[in-house]
Design a protein around this nucleic acid. Sequence first.
DNA 1: CGTATTATTGACTCCATTCAAAGATAGTGG
DNA 2: CCACTATCTTTGAATGGAGTCAATAATACG
Lengths: 241, 241
Amino acid sequence: MKDVINDLKISCSQCSLGDICIPRGLSKTEVKTLSDVVKQKTILYQNEYIYRQGDKFKGIFAIQTGMAKLVTIDPNGDEHILSILLPGELLGFDGLGDTHSCSAIALNTINVCELPRNRIEQACHKVPNLTYELFRHSSDILNDTQTHLVTAKLSGEQKIAKFMLDLSNRLQARGFSKSEFRLPLTRNEIGNHLGLAIETVSRLLKQLQQKKLLDIQLREVTILDYDGLMQIAHKDSNEEV
Amino acid sequence: MKDVINDLKISCSQCSLGDICIPRGLSKTEVKTLSDVVKQKTILYQNEYIYRQGDKFKGIFAIQTGMAKLVTIDPNGDEHILSILLPGELLGFDGLGDTHSCSAIALNTINVCELPRNRIEQACHKVPNLTYELFRHSSDILNDTQTHLVTAKLSGEQKIAKFMLDLSNRLQARGFSKSEFRLPLTRNEIGNHLGLAIETVSRLLKQLQQKKLLDIQLREVTILDYDGLMQIAHKDSNEEV
DNA sequence: CGTATTATTGACTCCATTCAAAGATAGTGG
DNA sequence: CCACTATCTTTGAATGGAGTCAATAATACG
């Protein structure tokens, strides 16, 4: 039975996330070489850790199915959700310094692929372009984090609108519906991620719903008006309507 | 004359920032090899650009003397100061994806060293550890950005206190006084960086001054009470005094 | 010396938080 | 299958921190 499961595992070559995930930018031959080094598909259930803050660098991971969150605990002991990870997205770069500066936690049942620490050098040697691609991914993550930093200055309504549009876009890029999806987070987690109180999140969602920009029943989101949401997300506070 | 100036340029081997800058983690031999590849000391004056948002990736730079800021312009056309760079700090990783996602601008007269794009591969080949060290630097920068994200949720007073302590610590690590330094930013820039209105910055600085935690005359800062500042920076808003 | 930039201060407003309570949902065991 | 509980969400009212507007003051610069 175990063999059957192993056989069912999808190698990088067969994976549909090729143009997003680690294989991005690599030739077919290179991806095949990569497949032998990448540890395929570890299954993890909700609230299980991919790695923990303080762990020695474990390696670079990729979400294959499901979603995860990156969480850091500050010196006060407060948790902060730094990012949400969708299929094809890489994580682990926070640990390259030596130890992981945040924890990666499954938001639902997920499959993760792993490029373990002790095989990275070997992999980069066998696939020279991989080094460059890893730098690119690392740079992309840095840029996303900087974008989040800019978002942190916006009004609550803008934060929520941007968050929803961002999720929608990223889901679409992965072949999911861009207009209907299930939020992987509680109101509390959304608030934590965006720097808002849970009550504010609830009120703002209601407000967007009343404006007919989106519909949300518990965690089921339907985007109704992209232009409307983008207008809110990008409206300059100094600019009159 | 030009030769004299060239001779005065400090190679990585001689530079005092060795344990902070690119040479960090490399052996003496490796640093020597590196010196031949790194372009030494370009001088730039206040408000001059090291690279611009939108530029094709130019390379990895290091501040040798002076300070710089990383600035991005959002879709609304608003500027955001993402970080302040001190001597020995690296920049340019935001461009590894392909084009630079932000601009790097001199805050005063600076000297920058450059590892140009087209020499990085060669350098990493000659000095294999360099690849790993660049990943580490990239990871450090990511972690700093994530820390800034956490800071963005704090109160104004906490932001200012953290900002001052952070500057103080980083200056000390580079051999400068940790208690007295000249702010490289206007109140406006501080506010922009921390997500506060200029008036709020002014008021909060006055407040910290009245509490005798620091003294500030225009741009000249004297830290008076580290413990006091740390207490403010780390005080949990849910925790009673 | 005069102008432009930068910084301070006060008064007022408003967005988001906090506190408090009730309502809805999902999961558990009898 | 229903009752029970824990968790999550919504809603209201009151408060407060930071923003905005407006004016003055201080500093730097040519």
